[in-house]
Write a protein that binds this DNA or RNA. Sequence first.
DNA 1: CCAAAAGTGTTGCCGTTACACCCATGT
DNA 2: ACATGGGTGTAACGGCAACACTTTTGG
Lengths: 234, 234
Amino acid sequence: MKPTKQLSDYPQPSVAIDLAILTVAQGGLQVLLMRRNDAEEVGGLWALPGGFVHADKTLDETVLRVMKEKAGLYEAHLEQLGTYGALERDPRGRVISVVYFALTPLQKLVAVSNGRDDLLLARIEVPWRGEEGGPADALSPDGEKLQLAFDHEELLGDVVKRLRGKLDYTPIGFALLERHFTLRDAQEIHEAILGRSLTKPAFRRKLLDRGLIRATGKFETGGAYRPAELYELK
Amino acid sequence: MKPTKQLSDYPQPSVAIDLAILTVAQGGLQVLLMRRNDAEEVGGLWALPGGFVHADKTLDETVLRVMKEKAGLYEAHLEQLGTYGALERDPRGRVISVVYFALTPLQKLVAVSNGRDDLLLARIEVPWRGEEGGPADALSPDGEKLQLAFDHEELLGDVVKRLRGKLDYTPIGFALLERHFTLRDAQEIHEAILGRSLTKPAFRRKLLDRGLIRATGKFETGGAYRPAELYELK
DNA sequence: CCAAAAGTGTTGCCGTTACACCCATGT
DNA sequence: ACATGGGTGTAACGGCAACACTTTTGG
């Protein structure tokens, strides 16, 4: 922050962050989208929340600012995905975006998007399986495909790929659950992210044998039939 | 590229790429360092090659430019690691760096660094094992620890961590070998990256059973004792 | 024939899966 | 009592590691 000296004699790109806020609902991954109100090419399209990185702010500070100002969210599991620098990705000019994703349980998001017509929790649908990648589709609650601004479909595909890849060797999936959860909850989260069903006993033991979670001795209430035990992350 | 409209009313950071060019030699990971000749804080220190991203160049173009101009390398396995945006990481001003790493066989690098006293192939030493992370040390050929400019020690640690993590579920290690290689060559590469020894039969079969490599029918020449068969990546 | 390194066979361990079953609870 | 979902026992499979072993070459 002593801009007395010119660091580069060339015109520089702008730097922004884009943030994919993800949760699981109705058996599938969902992403929080925002309607652009620009008077330009992307006006009216849905897009990931984002914001420019100012010279006196770190990347993390900028992500937190966007998460709070644009989506009303104050904390979540945050992770950097990567940086996208294609020349024409933003029709307004040269913008390089550092992409982050946030994971949070559904309850923290519904309060936010309710009553705002510029925010939408959209279902993510990936047309691919396993190793490959590619763009992902965002679907409105009616089930119609939404056209996203910029390269955000590509980007959303990359987020899902990263998430699936890290799911079974990190505790990342638990960021989508409340502090106390049942094993069924955990399984549903994992199934929603992977897009396939898992066998119950295998899943249970995998979690327990790894020693990442701990039984609390408490049980869920209110449900019909036998209540399941509540667990928590160690 | 129609910068007619102001994208942001705030002062923007500069964007650079930093490139860790890695190879394996003498049983260990090595990185290509460059001596800074600035007249400022970092002058005289060793650092990763880097360069600013101009408004009309993509990130990939910039990485290729740096690799060619600064290190004389024309192709390699290239991968984006992440983006570093701490405020004071560059004492000259606010610079955000997108960090890449390149993997290439030793032979392509020795020709480059020979005869240039501003380039050095430094041994990487990581003071940690397994899951954890942290900064990595760069050692001169004499074995003395080099002080790196900026946050490059931290960054180098992150590169090694990523490399180790991806080593056994991607063919990334083969980027450090020539097109034809023996199984012993491959094992030495893997041992150098992981920093521990592997058992021969297990390693052989792991590679062969996965079907990633193919025997060529040719054999190495010139060595003493029994020649090993040459393999190639499928 | 010997040394050194290439390459193979056998065994056992361990994490994961599949399937069948028992258990606990609310209606 | 019964339906429903929670939770467990057991057996089989497959990847992987360790060890001992055989094979091939140069000297």
